[in-house]
Nucleic acid binder design. Sequence first.
DNA 1: CTAGGGTTAG
Length: 563
Amino acid sequence: MKSLNPVLTHPALHLLGKCKTLYTLEQIHANIITTGLARHTYPLSRLLQSSSVLDITYTLEIFTHIPNPTIFLFNIVISSLINHRDLTHIAFSLYNRILLSRTSIKPNSFTYPSLFKACASQPWVRYGLALHNHVLKFLESEYDGYVQASLINYYANCGRLGVARYLFDQITDPDLPTWNSILSAYSRIDSDNGMVVDTFGTLVLFKEMQDSLVRPNEITLVALISACGNLGALSQGVWAHAYVVKNGLRLNHYIGTALIGMYSHCGCLELARQLFDQLPQRDRLCYNAMIGAFAIHGYGHRALDLYEKMKLEGLAPDNVTFVVTMSGCSHVGLVEKGCKIFESIKEVYGIEPTVEHYGCIVDLLSRAGRLREAEEKTLARLHLAPVRTRAKTGGNYVLLSNMYAGIDKWEDVKSMRKLMKHQGITKIPGTSLVEVGGAIHEFIMGDRTHPFLDDIHLKLEEISFSLQEYGHKPSTKEVLFDIEEEEKEEALLYHSERLAIAFALLMVDSNCPIRIIKNLRVCGDCHASTKLISKIYRREIVMRDRIRFHHFADGACSCKDYW
DNA sequence: CTAGGGTTAG
């Protein structure tokens, strides 16, 4: 026989689930107090839960009046607070209260996942390690999948991919979210390196997952698809797209946006556009992806048209929209249009331009030769730069330093390099990826480890000879300024894209285009050489560099030498 | 007998 506990079945609790306004909630709250239900954890938990959806300050108000809250109630309030980004500090102070409490409450495995989630963004990242210590201290040694997944995410988020992988390998039967955590971690592009070999790991891990009993879902495929985009692995990307269709996964915004990015990054702009057109509905991120696709392929006007269309559809542009649209302008020299967008950020949308926005406008102006204006913006930007870059990336410094190099301000280049060295930011080696027969090959500048090294070097000599016959003179301006001239020419010869092109000329079927992916910008000499190579060897070469795509054919490039 | 983890754009 089962008796009904009035604390669990009181009609007021039934109403809580349905209440839509703060007013009705207050009435139920009053009722809970007068009936004495407020002395029990269960009714309070329901009350806190319902109120957090309507008004989080009301939740806090209730919570502060609870004499000795159980860990259960703490957990509910902490996770609700973390869903409100600006109240994260209160969540941490509540956690602190748990640690300091003289009653016997201790954190449990429900306490940590949301706290680690909060540690994904600044300024909370620094608390993650201490939290991990607490996990080891307070929880049983075999803690559950939620905590494990949140730890994996935390370490992946702060760039400690090795630690994330180590933790993942400790888990005997990872569930779906845990698999997704590690796959997303591997598929994310490293903003400091532009590209990392670990992206390969996503594909390997996905295979391992398929050998397990866990079935991939949309989130899994998003990770897989974006990894294919980063790698430029078109055949695997198409396979992943087919997987979505064949297995009845939903073509939602996440998948749609990821596919647009993948096709675009693999050099297939029209496939990206077809996908964009075919999506049932499009949000801001889909638009950003598609505008970015037009931009990176050098179609500034199409990027601008889509930007206008997006606004007509009632979608407000955000920081990323401004970046991609301005970079589209920058690639084709649409200076006035680009400047207008830059001005509108503040004047129309009331948003303070970020370092990235200044970066765009400096790019736009300096490429168009309007150096004085570019320098003015640079000065404005330098005030913003240190705050954002210190923890993040050398990319902004490299960009500035290249800008100074471009206008022969070698003293400034020197001081930039010094500043970078001082801050522990190093120049990253150039790497190129090329797909040959479905496999991805990676070449690093000056690489001497490839199994076909001898053949590649023979081919490079042949190429070099043909280039000279066509009157090509190496231009060494963009090579490091402090080495001797012959060394500069030598260095040029072994730029990663040269190695990749030589290899592809040897291996790729002669009527297939050669598709190269670089992590840095292509240098002026490699650009000029590749144009000639496309003519001499009658090969279409599609090269994605850090900034944009270059489609080389018959001695010319789609960027019309403006990049 | 309630609570917690995973996704897209540059």
